[in-house]
């Protein structure tokens, strides 16, 4: 209660147990705090990914410790390591198997651009086969960098227009 007798904010006695908000905000709030990653561990970066999940860096502070090796149960594919041409179709197929909404983090120089492996066998950047939301630099990135990427991803999800097209059944949701 402010001095001039006008009441601001939420009062459950008057409005009941109801909060009015934008649907976007609610959906995004739910989504961004429970991103279940799918660790696409391909090479060296996978070791740092394991380190991020370990006790010192503790990825579970962000609701992301639930590593799912099944793409059906995951929201965010962390491509950790060099994507070779032989592996590329498989990465894409696993991405296709993930249920939407889904995001991709390209972890490390190799996944982002091919990195130091400028050679006949290495795909120069995983963004040629899957859409990437966050790129992380480093070879390999430190766990802090990966955590920062996850926070960037949370920010990005927070700004998405999630409610658009949600009520139209026939419109496929990205």
């Amino acid at each position: 209660m402010s001095p001039n007798g006008v009441e601001y904010g939420y009062n459950s006695k008057i409005e009941g147990e109801v909060v009015v908000s934008k649907l976007d905000a609610v959906i995004n709030w739910v989504r961004k705090h429970s991103i279940w990653p799918m660790p696409m561990g391909l090479a060296c970066c996978a070791i740092e990914l394991m380190g991020t999940a370990g006790s010192r860096f503790d990825i579970s502070r962000f609701g992301m410790e639930v590593m799912r090796f099944s793409p059906r149960q995951a929201d965010c594919m962390i491509v950790a390591g060099t994507v070779t041409y032989k592996m590329a179709p498989i990465v894409r197929r696993i991405y296709d198997q993930m249920a939407g909404p889904k995001w991709v983090i390209a972890m490390g120089a190799c996944a982002s651009t091919g990195g130091m492996y400028r050679s006949y066998a290495t795909m120069q950047g995983v963004d040629r086969i899957v859409p990437v939301d966050v790129y992380v630099s480093g070879c390999p990135p430190r766990p802090e960098a990966l955590i920062d990427a996850l926070m960037k991803l949370q920010n990005k999800i927070g700004n998405e227009r999630s409610a658009r097209g949600l009520l139209k059944r026939d419109q496929a949701h990205a």
């Binding site: 590329a88 179709p89 498989i90 894409r92 197929r93 296709d96 795909m123 040629r128 086969i129 899957v130």
Partner: peptide, 11 residues
Amino acid sequence: EDTEVREATDA
């Protein structure tokens, strides 16, 4: 082996 993937990405 993966023609769908190739068609989807043209990679």
